[in-house]
């Protein structure tokens, strides 16, 4: 049966490409098309905000306070507010996040406890940001009586970004090769000495990259700070951590929806949006570049 079947085929022509591959190219093109939509959206929004915001951006815009019911002037206190919120948040979250990662990668023994911890982190990562806002309101603003403040906002953001910091740090720690650990232990170092002197320094670039990406995430968040820290307007800069602050994302939201001069403040809205995007995407890009460099450079 096979004999005739095979010989019936013309050997030369059969190897030429033919229209049979139409379905193939159709679906692959479809994938290419649909798969590019996300990138197109990013560039469309980037282009649009940059186009409308670029002429607002100036030295004065980023160094002056708002004037005339925010229809004029700059956004200096707004930028400062976002920077303070973000910095305080990272100062709080990094020690906890990295220690948790050390716990997970070096100390935790397989078992129910580890499962519960992992599941908690996984669940925490899926909690909506507005729910973190409610939590911050109930705990930091009300129960601990911090009021709407820089401190309450930063702590809320810290809890929100904690799962992200844990997972990036854990990844960095796990990338440290086992042979490094063995070498250190073989020299008579204790476990903690090995972690401090060998594992942490080796993982540090990865941990810091995670911190940069986490910072980018935090600085763009609105919902967690709406009821915990963000003010529509403050006179001057905050003098203590117990004062509310202005923040870039909240500023955009308020000016675009709730202000009394929505149309008049449009240029300021674009300028603020562009500032926020440059800040967030800039840090994000920095993180991505650092990470890919580390992956390439990794000699071990």
């Amino acid at each position: 049966m096979t004999e005739t079947f095979r010989d019936a085929r013309a050997p030369i022509d059969a190897l030429r490409k033919r229209g049979r591959n139409l379905t193939e190219s159709f679906f692959l093109s479809l994938i290419r098309l649909l798969g590019s939509v996300g990138a197109l959206i990013l560039f469309a929004i980037l282009f649009f905000v940059a186009y409308n915001g670029i002429h607002i951006l100036s030295w004065e815009f980023i160094t002056q306070p708002p004037l005339d019911a925010m229809t004029k002037g700059g956004i200096f206190p707004v930028i400062v507010g976002t920077v303070l919120l973000t910095m305080l948040c990272m100062i709080v979250v990094m020690p906890i996040g990295v220690t948790t990662a050390i716990f997970l990668s070096e100390y935790a023994k397989p078992g129910l406890l580890l499962k519960i911890v992992m599941m908690s982190i996984y669940t925490l990562a899926g909690v909506p940001s507005v729910v973190f806002g409610l939590f911050g309101l109930a705990v930091f603003v009300v129960t601990l009586n911090f009021g709407m403040s820089l401190l309450a906002g930063s702590l809320t953001l810290a809890i929100m970004v904690l799962p992200y910091i844990i997972s990036t740090s854990e990844e960095a720690l796990k990338a440290v090769p086992y042979s490094f650990k063995e070498a250190s232990l073989a020299c008579g170092a204790t476990k903690w000495q090995t972690i401090r002197k060998v594992i942490l320094p080796t993982a540090l670039p990865g941990i810091l990259t995670g911190a940069i990406l986490g910072t980018a995430k935090v600085s763009g968040e609105t919902a967690p700070i709406m009821f915990t820290a963000a003010a529509f307007f403050t006179t001057g800069l905050p003098r203590s951590v117990f004062e509310p602050v202005m923040a870039l994302p909240y500023h955009i939201y308020v000016l675009a929806t709730a202000g009394t001069h929505i149309e008049e403040t449009r240029p300021i809205q674009y300028g603020t949006a562009l500032t926020l995007i440059v800040l967030v995407l800039g840090m994000n890009l920095l993180g991505i570049i650092l990470r890919s460099r580390q992956r390439k450079k990794r000699a071990w």
Binding site: I12, L15, R16, K17
Partner: peptide, 12 residues
Amino acid sequence: FHGVDIYRKDTD
């Protein structure tokens, strides 16, 4: 393969 170069551009 059967006298045809399989690394030709138009090979299926």
